[in-house]
Design a protein around this nucleic acid. Sequence first.
DNA 1: GATGAATGAGCATTCATTCAT
DNA 2: AATGAATGAATGCTCATTCAT
Lengths: 190, 190, 190, 190
Amino acid sequence: MSPRSKEENLKIQQQTRQNILFTALQAFGEKGYANTTVSYIAKEAGISKGLIYHYFESKEEILKSLFHFLVEMSKGIMNDAQEKAPQEQLKQIITGSVAFVKTQTNTVRFMTSLAVQPAVIADIEDLLETQKELLMTAMKNIFEALAYEQPELEAYHIGAFLDGISLGYMATKDYPIDQLEQKILKHYKL
Amino acid sequence: MSPRSKEENLKIQQQTRQNILFTALQAFGEKGYANTTVSYIAKEAGISKGLIYHYFESKEEILKSLFHFLVEMSKGIMNDAQEKAPQEQLKQIITGSVAFVKTQTNTVRFMTSLAVQPAVIADIEDLLETQKELLMTAMKNIFEALAYEQPELEAYHIGAFLDGISLGYMATKDYPIDQLEQKILKHYKL
Amino acid sequence: MSPRSKEENLKIQQQTRQNILFTALQAFGEKGYANTTVSYIAKEAGISKGLIYHYFESKEEILKSLFHFLVEMSKGIMNDAQEKAPQEQLKQIITGSVAFVKTQTNTVRFMTSLAVQPAVIADIEDLLETQKELLMTAMKNIFEALAYEQPELEAYHIGAFLDGISLGYMATKDYPIDQLEQKILKHYKL
Amino acid sequence: MSPRSKEENLKIQQQTRQNILFTALQAFGEKGYANTTVSYIAKEAGISKGLIYHYFESKEEILKSLFHFLVEMSKGIMNDAQEKAPQEQLKQIITGSVAFVKTQTNTVRFMTSLAVQPAVIADIEDLLETQKELLMTAMKNIFEALAYEQPELEAYHIGAFLDGISLGYMATKDYPIDQLEQKILKHYKL
DNA sequence: GATGAATGAGCATTCATTCAT
DNA sequence: AATGAATGAATGCTCATTCAT
């Protein structure tokens, strides 16, 4: 008759939070933030509306938590690549990005919709900027190591291209993403 | 107190429609479709809510009309380019796109947000696809005329790049859009 | 087919606002602010929930408007008494207060519940204080004119008594309010 | 690991009940019954929500228990005064009331808010009435013993006055409660 | 005796849409 | 053609209450 132990509670909390965040990510990606109701998230997650508000103060808080979570995740991925040779890193960024778009389309949809109208959700604008800069710096360093004349511009170039591929994949049926990947890899001789 | 002539009425009608569409475009671009209320459009346009429903059956109808309007406009622009030399056409597409993004940012925001989550507004998905194909075909023809080995893939390539530039410009402060434009022009030797 | 004239709209607006305020006053008095739902006010007023929000920004705004309205009304009543002889004024305050409590019990309930827990609705605290001071000054002036030694204290005295009578009338069945009125009038030789 | 003895359990139970009731009294007085959440009481009392429901069937039950508790307490106080001389009793009622208002303001706030809108909590209405009558009878007896012509009316009179003082003290900054106390004591030659 | 995760009915509020004028 | 008062379904959120542990 004793209450749950702290560890048990913590475990339950983490699972439920993750469940909510994951479900929200799916929904936000598919239907957009504004078109996703909290009730819908609850139903999809198999829990009650009230429980969502037990873990998150508001719908917007879910969005922000989700965003932070994804940012942290991407940081982790980037750090892993840090030690390899620049050519290898570049290749990994390209193939990793393409693979990510293909497997985590909803995540990309979600992040892109935030990027397109950053003013919609205040607070996120800055974080988005920081996140972009981080990626840009990493790529710039690679192109510096590869002795490109304008490493920063080259970073923007490939960044734009990868973003454009994402958009195309999300918006167009039968988008030749794999061929474009090959093309870009060949261009950089990877 | 004489009634307005038919021509006057028609003129007023067209002006009011355009006014609504233009105001909606601004709002949809800045705040997003879901975050824009019909009341807000009415206030910004300086007319009453009722009048909006006199011209459009629903809020979604405004969105669709706006979309069609923009599609028609872009068709017109593309047709104008049709007769020139392929190199000239390509240059115009690139510089025109960049200029459009810079001057009509809200329009681009609007179109991009539709592209990212096409499922949000049914019906539009197909039109979006058709529109994309039109542009792709035009670019493919150019690259064919320029004797590229894989003209279609090249079209996708430059399309992705231009889309990526748009995204970057919308989401990033101090985005080097002009330098990227120069870079791509140089790449195609234009 | 022309829209309503401005005067017509103004008239409709005032009527509807008054209707809402009056209904809210009844409800707040009987059930208390927190126990009164906006839906209930709408139903009682014979209008839709939405219309209430067309006229008032929030439920709390109704409360504040109502409070301001009642304060203005009481100012008007007090000004009317201003010109008479002090004895007459005192008599009028006493009989007027008693009559008000008896006929406008819900108004008194409403105002008293605000007075008891002023912290519940921020903003109102100051106004309540101002209102009290106004009444106190008026009564003090009367007792000064009547050459009482401690006019201010006497004002507080009769104020407390009248407030106490209100409370008693609201809370107790068969409360002898009329006899108490006679007693106090006799006390002041009125 | 030996189980607690029965006496220990009983003691803990009573302490916890008292803790809940006391915390609730503070909260109800400050914020009002409707604006006080069970969660808030639990947090303030330093216990869990569940435990509150272990001791009380519902939030309303807390209110009722609290009310009963306060009524019993006041009965005890009144009984203590029973044996003294009527003048002494009257003095004690006056000074005791004033002191109570000053030290137990939240309790008075709570009781007054119940009195103002008795319909809010059914069931309590009768008890409130009974309670009032008890006090009235006691005061009436005093004034009878003091040979007042209308002892009951005099009881209502002083009752109203003391209630009015309470209200004033709760609602007004710098309320001259002590001077009013002196004034009333002098009036009754105490 | 004690905890807090979980539920869901209920409420304030918004907003697309209608309609009388 | 034009207005804006009016509607009500839908949504975010709160909170008393339950229950597994």
